[in-house]
Computed example of a mutant assay.
Amino acid sequence: MSTARDLMIVALDVEPSRPPERGDLSLALAGAEAYDLLRAELLELDGDRIVPRLLPEVGDPLLAEAASSLVRQGPYETLEDWLWRRGRGLARAYLTTLEREGQVTWERSRWLPFRGGRTVLSDTGARRRASYRWAADEPVLLTLAAAVGIRDEMTAAEPGITDDAVLTVLAAVHDAVMELEAVRQRRAIEDAAFANVWRGA
């Protein structure tokens, strides 16, 4: 079971609270991979640093790629640094993989065949599994989805997470998404100021 795959499918399948930014989704997918590697005991956390463990066979190719990308020499990489490095372009990589596997197709408009289209999920076991986890309110999946705006933040009445390492991963994803949003806002302000300078010249 791949939480990252399930998160990508949910992102394509569910009407979001707000459309997720691709960069936000990539960071959350990297966090989902870290969670899966942690659960499979392929890594452990020493404070905020990722300590890799033995590398057995991993069935999912993207998860295997994530495991092989871990820094295997001390002082090891921080979780935050790994999220940013691993997350670069990760949403596109997952979408491409799902398309290659026939999980997703690209439907062009009949009336405007050269003006884009939309992704359509096939009725597969992977989609049903992701839908089941979503409907079951699986807390890690819900928290990652909330971080990128696919759903609202979890409430106190919803099932919580008690594992400290998992909480560390989810907090790092949340912080990285917030940092990325701050960068976007700063750039928007700078671009607006630059445009005002040119209009006033």
Rank of each mutant, 00 (worst) to 15 (best):
residue 3 T to M: 10
residue 6 D to K: 09
residue 10 V to F: 03
residue 10 V to K: 00
residue 15 E to F: 11
residue 16 P to Y: 10
residue 20 P to M: 05
residue 20 P to G: 07
residue 32 A to K: 00
residue 36 D to T: 00
residue 37 L to Q: 01
residue 38 L to D: 02
residue 39 R to F: 04
residue 39 R to T: 07
residue 45 L to D: 02
residue 52 P to K: 03
residue 55 L to E: 11
residue 56 P to D: 04
residue 59 G to Y: 09
residue 59 G to A: 10
residue 60 D to S: 07
residue 62 L to I: 13
residue 62 L to C: 06
residue 66 A to C: 13
residue 71 V to T: 11
residue 74 G to P: 10
residue 76 Y to A: 01
residue 80 E to W: 03
residue 82 W to T: 00
residue 93 A to F: 02
residue 97 T to P: 00
residue 97 T to Y: 08
residue 101 E to R: 14
residue 103 Q to K: 07
residue 111 W to V: 14
residue 114 F to H: 12
residue 114 F to P: 01
residue 117 G to Q: 04
residue 117 G to F: 04
residue 124 T to D: 09
residue 125 G to L: 11
residue 126 A to L: 13
residue 127 R to H: 12
residue 127 R to N: 07
residue 128 R to N: 10
residue 128 R to H: 14
residue 128 R to A: 14
residue 134 W to M: 03
residue 136 A to Q: 15
residue 137 D to R: 13
residue 138 E to Q: 14
residue 138 E to R: 13
residue 141 L to D: 01
residue 142 L to I: 06
residue 143 T to G: 02
residue 147 A to E: 09
residue 150 I to L: 15
residue 151 R to Q: 07
residue 154 M to Y: 07
residue 159 P to H: 05
residue 163 D to I: 13
residue 163 D to C: 11
residue 168 T to N: 03
residue 172 A to N: 01
residue 178 M to V: 15
residue 178 M to E: 15
residue 189 I to F: 12
residue 190 E to A: 12
residue 193 A to H: 13
